[in-house]
Nucleic acid binder design. Sequence first.
DNA 1: AACACGGGGCG
DNA 2: CGCCCAGTGTT
Length: 381
Amino acid sequence: MQEAPGTNKSSARGSKTIPNELYFTRKLLEWHHRDNRREMPWKGIHDPYKIWLSEIILQQTRVSQGLSYYLRLLAAYPSIEKLATASDAEVMKLWEGLGYYTRCRNMLRTARIVMTNYKGQFPASFEKLLELPGIGPYTAAAIASFAFRLPYAVVDGNVSRVLSRFFGIETPIDTTNGKQLFAQLAGRLLDSREPGVYNQAIMDFGATVCMPQQPICGLCPLGKKCTARQNGVVHRLPVKEKAVMKKIRWLAYFVFEYQGKWCVQERTDKDIWQNLFEFYAVETEGAMEWTQPVIVEWLQQQGIRRFQLNHISALYTQLLTHREIRAVFIRVKLSGIPHFLKNHRWIAVQKMKTLPFPRVINRWLDEGFEQPIWGKAGPAK
DNA sequence: AACACGGGGCG
DNA sequence: CGCCCAGTGTT
């Protein structure tokens, strides 16, 4: 459900708006008028076809990446009729390389629906726009406000970020609750006299001042009343709940022991745990059954002839933001240092605690192996 | 509510 | 590498 059209007239008459909301809209529009020099071909125009085309292209796509596609598609299909009568393959060829190819198919579907059902004219209605394939709440609000000057507030990544920071809202933006909250707030902030201008302003502001990574708070015209800035929490807003578990990584740690020393290595790759230490690691693509016969064969393949397999641990897991680590620890006592471990570091067992390890390794050191080496008191918890 | 869908820019 | 981008559709 889209929030009801905004009621903020950017004047003191708005009965329910709190002072900060009026301040926000006024300062934002001042900034847009005074400092915003972000020029784009689709800005300031009211042709629904061009607005729609640009919005579809820009879904989850940076302006710098989508611009050339917009120009090429518009040149090839100057009107929605030209687009609607083009062949699927021809349009897809022009979309090639932009990604999210469902957008292209839905774009064509919508062009044909508009031709047959609406006589080639996009409906000047938020609800009707929303029914068209590839047009969701954001795009419907964008077309409604830019093309038809209807009072609907857009809520995209820029908007939710700017609002979460200025008003200090910690509700995750990617939940049903959060989406509803930000849509409501955005609707109240909207300047209903010029919805399109306001929507341009807040998105440009998010893209050029209140950026995701390094916002230019020093130059921010709203900084005086920005809640996040006052509280020093700009960097951790907006909050996102979804931490998609992209990949499980399977690690086998071989704890090689030789003359009271353990073999360790430092992680230096551009990867997790940079500059932390670990044991000799074997990473596999999928789950690997590190049973005794498998381990013995693996050791022999490495040219290790004399060894003593002391222990195979249970599976240890560690959750990272976008990874899940699953590690098994394999203790092997050697009677010599094999060639492939010549350049590794060998640390006295008593000194292990002085090195930095990932949590999953520390947990194994603390509780994971049968014969304690820290002494009967055990390691510090 | 969770997931799939792409490719590129940036630190 | 991790994060994010003028989000939407499906299950």
